[in-house]
């Protein structure tokens, strides 16, 4: 055993707790030494604590600086603030990193997709500045700032360079939103000058969507403002196998929260039939973040092998295995190869 890591586990609600237990089983079996601290988040703690995100949870994340999070649900139109958005704001998790990479065994129409998406996570139309400015007109303020744009671009270039990536495109609609998206693009171009070894360019968001579905292999890394990032990262997830296999990380200067991007699927809660892969690949991403590359590689290899065999896979990929059986099959595969 190497260094012990302390990680805050946020199981979330709905199917979240059963998914997170399965993921913990796999990660603990990988040889990494993690002490898990469980904390509450989401609808289940609304009744108990009157908030979707209790202070105790915030304090635990602040202390440990790293968390693995299961899915949560934001109630629509109830006035409750989203736990996810609040987490991003409290910890200033300005970079949403969403890799979209083809999983070899999942049959898709493309040979290669390996896109690293960097979505700005705190600004844009997500600044929660909305008003009914008359009884028949609503407006939402789109807030784009120079420092906010500069740091996501810098973060993306730095990550891309460390990952050996070659090309970054800024996605925008600066031909129409000349002030806001124009500022985002200007900051990106300024940052690009610091990284002459990485090819940079820009693409208008609607064209980017069309190019992604026609020829996704042409893209390497994308930097996006919040709203386009929200949409295009799901589009990219769809290209590689859906949200069931899409990892995500919300990263700030001093804290990182790794999470699946799918919902909590409350109608399946307790049935133990959902696929835990999205949280698992987020966990793999987390292991790489804490420099546990060996454990990350072991899990990834075993997971691909189990998916390839198709004996112990969940219903969404054509199998009949439960969440636990799928996780146990990955553990068995890791041990078999050890």
């Amino acid at each position: 055993m190497g260094t012990q890591h302390i990680v805050t586990m946020l199981p979330g609600e709905g199917t979240g707790p059963e998914i997170c237990e399965a993921v913990r089983l796999v990660i603990d079996a990988s040889g990494v030494d993690i002490k898990w601290e469980y904390e509450e988040i989401g609808l289940d703690c609304l009744e108990k604590h009157g908030t979707l995100l209790p202070d105790k949870t915030v304090q635990a994340i602040a202390r440990n600086k790293i968390a693995l999070k299961g899915p949560t649900t934001t109630p629509i139109g109830t006035g409750h603030k989203s736990a996810n958005v609040t987490l991003r704001k409290v910890f200033d998790l300005y970079a949403n990193v969403r890799p979209a990479k083809l999983i070899p065994v999942l049959k898709r129409p493309w040979d290669k997709i390996d896109i690293l998406n960097f979505r700005e996570n705190t600004e844009d139309c997500y600044a929660a500045i909305e008003h009914m400015v008359s009884d028949e007109v609503a407006q939402c303020l789109k807030v784009i700032t120079w420092p906010g744009s500069y740091r996501i671009a810098d973060f993306a270039f730095k990550w891309a360079k460390a990952a050996g990536r070659k090309k970054i495109y800024c996605v925008h609609k600066a031909n129409i939103m000349k002030m806001t998206d124009g500022l985002f693009l200007d900051a990106f171009r300024e940052v690009a000058k610091k990284y002459p070894d990485i090819e940079s360019g820009d693409i208008i968001v609607d064209n980017c969507c069309m190019q992604l579905v026609r020829n996704p292999a042409q893209f390497d890394c994308l930097v996006l403002p919040n709203l386009y990032g929200d949409i295009l990262t799901d589009l990219c997830a769809g290209l590689v196998g859906g949200l069931g296999f899409a990892p995500g990380a919300n990263v700030g200067d001093n804290c990182a929260i790794f999470e699946a991007v799918h919902g909590s699927a409350p109608k399946y809660a307790g049935l133990k039939k959902v696929n835990p892969s999205a949280v698992l690949v987020s966990g793999i991403m987390m292991l790489r973040w804490i420099k546990e590359e060996v454990a990350a590689d072991r899990i990834q290899k075993a997971m691909f092998a189990v998916l390839d065999e198709r004996k112990h896979v969940t219903y969404d990929v054509g199998g009949t295995a439960t969440t636990d059986e799928y996780a146990q099959a990955i553990v068995d595969k890791m041990h078999a190869k050890a």
């Binding site: 705190t122 600044a127 700032t145 420092p147």
Partner: peptide, 23 residues
Amino acid sequence: SNRGTKVWPGFVSPDLLMVNWYR
């Protein structure tokens, strides 16, 4: 609030990016 994040009253992360424009 600053960039949509509440900065008063209550806790403000020392790492929070703030600009010169407050709501």
